[in-house]
Design a protein around this nucleic acid. Structure first.
Lengths: 228, 228
DNA sequence: GGAGCCTGCGACGGTTATGTGACAAATCGG
DNA sequence: CCGATTTGTCACATAACCGTCGCAGGCTCC
């Protein structure tokens, strides 16, 4: 079962960013816009992780944190606190109150995702690695590096995300449309053929590091990364 | 018993596309054209899955979702929401309201079907596998791969679909017309004899991987895949 | 055994899907 | 603000695939 992450955040821009990225990493996600809603949603379905904004309308983040830790049905619910810069002193109280981790806004999305993975892996080991190896190719999402036979490979951002996605599901065939939805994002509109070009670039980069083409073309279906 | 999927969608073009594809995958399918009808049809016969358009006349998708979740006889009814691009913020409310998954229009049919399978498999495990084995032949629809005695077999798209269809109903005899309808699609017009040629090609490919011909010709009736 | 139907299969022209170099616009990083 | 990088799209060549035909051989039924 997919881990369920609850976002408690009143700024829509932030919550959407989080929602988008968490979904992309294949979590179940819920969003609460204020403190009351957060408490309700926690009762409805216990999340595996709570991303908790410090400043929430109605019931503040710190209050929620305290209640979860002292009162609720699940006092060990992992919590990552989102604080704004300058609330440094609050941060201390936050950790006091029992948050597992905190991140200051504005935050780097990849960093936050890494922390989310880290926390969840503590709860559910073997969940999703920061480094994946398939065959002789290795990707390190934290360091943003790709290696093949210990050669460093430089990839553009899109090629990186593309390879990342392939490596999360080795062997599986994805249509151009699926790739556009997940790697590019479901809200941008680009030609399906664009995928071909980027796959081509990815191939060239991987070929340069030796070995043969690890990407399989499945005619009239899409592309897949060869397993092993 | 076949799973029953209810489509709630007012755009005829979309609902027919869904209807066609869901039928092809062997589900029972119902179509509701507006919100009221949807609620009625849910009452009449509880679906195993609801494909719910966001914008429905009379009663909106979100309202239906909420009513199902809070009120109805079956609050756990799986729901896949269909949203148009640009309704991104609605999507959040959708997940809040309790949809299990969402897909943005225009969507890739194969991807939607994959999600449908995924959701249904959660409800009814062992429903329709991504891999099927018949005798010494194995087909993996996700990886788009065919194996016989651990030899990889390369098939063209049509041969792949043909084998896929045979393997879903091993032993059963299909007429050329049936095969054209299901494997080619009911809207294309090709000679019935074309099936022979593709069966021939499929046979050759399977023979190349060793073993004898697993496809049985039934004179003046059609073809079938040998079970066992 | 033979006429008439049915099937297997190689060959062939036409169509479609894919790989790739080029290029202009967009974006990034100072 | 400029140079460097990255990105999306196009055009074109090529390879893969498709549908049809024709013929040889098999099967059926009388």
């Amino acid at each position: 079962m997919k881990p369920y992450v609850l976002i408690a955040e009143d700024e829509k821009a932030v919550s959407e960013l989080l929602l988008y990225n968490l979904r992309k990493e294949d979590y179940d996600v819920g969003v609460a816009m204020d403190g009351e809603e957060t408490l309700m949603m926690i009762d409805e379905r216990t999340p595996d992780l709570l991303l908790l904004d410090w400043m929430l309308p109605k019931v503040s983040g710190i209050e929620i944190c305290r209640r979860v830790r002292t009162g609720g049905a699940n006092p060990n619910l992992p919590i990552i606190m989102l604080t704004a810069r300058g609330e440094e002193s609050d941060r201390i109280r936050g950790l006091d109150t029992g948050a597992d981790d905190y991140v200051t806004k504005p935050f780097s999305t990849t960093e936050l995702m890494a922390r989310v993975r880290a926390v969840l892996r503590r709860i559910r080991p073997g969940l999703k690695e920061d480094r994946i190896t398939v065959g002789d190719i290795e990707i390190d999402r934290v360091a943003h590096r790709v290696t093949r036979q210990s050669d460093d490979i430089h990839l553009g951002p899109t090629e990186f995300r593309l390879l990342d996605y392939f490596m999360q599901h080795p062997g599986r065939v994805f249509s151009r449309e699926q790739l556009l939805d997940t790697v590019w994002g479901s809200d941008v509109y680009v030609e399906a053929r664009t995928v071909d070009v980027h796959v081509g670039r990815l191939r060239k980069a991987l070929r340069n590091a030796g070995g043969d083409d690890p990407i399989r073309t499945v005619r009239s279906a899409g592309y897949a990364l060869r397993e092993d």
